[in-house]
Design a protein around this nucleic acid. Structure first.
Lengths: 157, 157
DNA sequence: CCAATAAATTTGTATTTTGCAAATATAGGT
DNA sequence: ACCTATATTTGCAAAATACAAATTTATTGG
């Protein structure tokens, strides 16, 4: 079990492929970053441009332009916050929710496939481990600013 | 433990940050893809352009240009294969190995930090789980073409 | 040995993405 | 109202990407 990093590097690469191949649907050609944006807007609707760009670790200017694109595609709705006229608040359109759901299904189908090679005990163990990892990464603010909100993810452990 | 995808999405995002923040060193400003290239060339020296671009899931033309950049930076050495004059074979320069080692150290330091929040039993379990995941993903060719070679990664389990 | 076909890599080129700084717009305090 | 801070957008130049066409070397069948 030496070379911890190799283990993780390969896993990350694999999930990167997964992510990449699951982001387009029949009707829409969604880029990887766009799928991440849809995911996060779907998960936490009503958040501001700034909040979500930070969560995803993107430059705000880049993010702003991606949102413009997604608004033009009619997948995201951008409305001024009633509380603060400077901030804009993001939500998915019905169309956008449909796309997000499709991506979600593709991802889950793949994950099911991966887990089909394990016993249910192994599956439980792996899931438990990912939860542990997520929790530990949330605690550890040593290296990188992992600002990802995981309240929702850890809540239902 | 419903919503498998959320669990993984957050983990991938976190490791994406990690990856991103660990790829530059004091002397070199390495991009994320470049760090992946260095990693893979280091891991399997003497592979062809085509092989590595496929392993990393990049367009060969894009990859070719990235290699040109890395050769100019004197991190990668590109030499014609003695067996087949059409193929070029990649290795890291001493400088490149140094950079790869530095990135590796940063990653491992972060991973150690993450694991410091766990008991050694938990750590063992998590590592075992990642190995399992990698193995299962290697078997599963359902969704995406996960061509990633893991022979080295799984060998020493 | 030559012509034709195939494979590995590079180059042309147009498009997209990105990063940083400057601009714009709105809030809030004094 | 004036000044400062915060949220977002825009200008612009640099880098990354995709796809097709070009280049180079191998291989194969006559």
């Amino acid at each position: 079990m030496e070379n911890l990093r190799e283990l993780f590097q390969i896993m990350i690469r694999r999930f990167g492929f997964l992510d990449k191949y699951c982001c387009s649907t029949d009707e829409y050609n969604i880029s990887l970053v766009q799928s991440h944006i849809l995911y996060e807007v779907d998960r936490r609707p009503g958040q501001s441009i700034q909040t979500i760009s930070e969560t995803l670790g993107m430059e705000m200017s880049t993010f702003s332009r991606q949102i413009q694109t997604l608004v033009k595609m009619d997948l995201v709705k951008k409305s001024p916050s009633p509380e603060d006229g400077r901030v804009f608040v993001l939500r998915l359109t019905e169309e956008g929710k449909g796309v997000a759901r499709q991506i979600d299904q593709q991802m889950n189908a793949f994950l099911d496939d991966v887990f089909s090679h394990m016993s249910s005990f192994e599956k439980e163990t792996v899931i438990r481990s990912i939860q542990l990892l997520n929790a530990s990464m949330a605690q550890s603010d040593g290296c990188c600013s992992c600002k990802t909100e995981i309240s929702l993810a850890t809540k239902e452990s």
